[in-house]
Nucleic acid binder design. Structure first.
Length: 201
DNA sequence: GCTAGGCAGGAACCCCTCCTCCCCT
């Protein structure tokens, strides 16, 4: 089997979560979306998206922010099932999320604990690292700032819906990666670890 | 009309610790 850091750059899943708030220990996941990128090519037809049914109601300000209402999640899978589906989609890919070191990965980890899901380790890269490496520490590294610098439009995607954000993030990652390592032969920023549910199938 | 938790980078300083800001919903 190829070393982890090699396959890491070939098979990537860029993903995003929408939640009921900012605290991984207090708040709940309401949407997961992912899109695959192989060798720098975004594979649109290999996309993943699901709403997730939270135990509590979605606060009004979250519905205003994300466009996701209680009606959207009424018949959605429970968190454990949604996370297991996501894990199957991920396979042995390396994950990328924006500010995922502090937000998305802790949310997944907390949910695995909360719902007693066994976990497995996957490679993880925070896409903010690409921006810091390219543009340094003085400018902003939020997705909006990166979109502006790359002159990326939202391509009609709805911002703050995971399906829209993940498409935009994939384009941004592809461009930033290309500027740092044009052949996509290696990952130009630090590769870390994360956990997602272990899926027995 | 509204909220909250924490990593990483930089400074100051010699190797860690502290601080502040950022960014995600």
């Amino acid at each position: 089997m190829a070393p982890h850091h090699f396959s890491a750059c070939m098979n990537i899943v860029i993903f995003d979560l929408e939640t009921t708030g900012l605290s991984p220990s207090e708040n709940e996941i309401i949407q997961i979306a992912g899109i695959r990128m192989i060798g720098g090519r975004i594979v649109e037809e290999e996309s993943f998206a699901t709403f997730v049914k939270p135990e509590s109601r979605i606060p009004r300000f979250i519905t205003d922010y994300t466009g996701i209402s209680n009606a959207h999640v009424r018949n959605a899978p429970q968190p454990a099932n949604a996370l297991l589906s996501f894990s199957r989609f991920v396979g042995d890919a390396t994950l990328i999320a924006h500010n995922g070191n502090r937000f998305d990965m802790p949310f997944i980890r907390e949910n695995c604990i909360r719902h007693r899901l066994p976990v497995r380790t996957v490679g993880f890269v925070d896409s903010m690292s690409f921006s810091r490496k390219l543009w340094g520490g003085r400018c902003g590294h939020g997705l909006d700032a990166i979109m502006n610098r790359l002159q990326l439009s939202d391509h009609g995607a709805r911002r703050h819906d995971a399906r829209g954000d993940v498409k935009i993030l994939a384009l941004a990652v592809r461009q930033m990666w290309e500027q740092l390592s044009p052949n996509f032969q290696h990952c130009p920023v630090a590769l870390g670890d994360g956990v997602i549910p272990f899926n027995p199938y």
